[in-house]
């Protein structure tokens, strides 16, 4: 199997896995979006690899492999930043829910107390 085929098969395989995870509601589209874009780019450059060589030369990379390493690492850094962003957002929401839950629990406790004393 040529390297080109290996890249295409790997990207298509991951893409199908992502689709299946979305279909099973294990992953939602919002979080799968950046991965889908990366995999589509992988498939595109796997099929039309001449663009990869041209782009690599145009950006001044001596070896195309260096460009690929740079692009993959850059992509992962960006993806992990996105995930951190999502994580922070979730953290904030969790904190807010915890605060509201505490206040509501207090209200419920007091209502129960009032109910008890009014019924007795």
């Amino acid at each position: 199997m040529s390297t080109k085929m290996l890249v295409i098969v790997y990207c298509v395989g991951l893409f199908l896995l992502l689709m299946e995870l979305i279909r099973r509601d294990r992953l939602n589209f919002k979080y799968a979006g950046p991965w889908i874009i990366c995999l589509l780019l992988g498939i595109f450059f796997g099929v039309f690899d001449q663009f990869l060589y041209r782009m690599s030369a145009w950006l001044g990379f001596g070896l195309t492999s260096n460009f690929i390493f740079f692009a993959v690492l850059g992509g992962f850094v960006f993806l992990s930043l996105l995930m951190t962003l999502f994580l922070c957002q979730q953290n904030k929401r969790n904190d807010r829910i915890a605060q509201q839950l505490g206040i509501l629990e207090h209200e419920l406790r007091e209502l129960k107390k009032q109910n008890k004393s009014s019924s007795s």
């Binding site: 904190d95 915890a98 605060q99 509201q100 839950l101 505490g102 206040i103 629990e105 207090h106």
Partner: peptide, 25 residues
């Protein structure tokens, strides 16, 4: 005493903010 129990530890800021939310409410 009036008590708001947070389900997990948020840190001093989170606890005080819950108090602010209670006061605003």
């Amino acid at each position: 005493m009036d008590l708001v129990s947070l389900p997990f530890n948020l840190g001093i800021g989170g606890a005080v903010q819950a108090g602010f939310q209670y006061a605003a409410r």
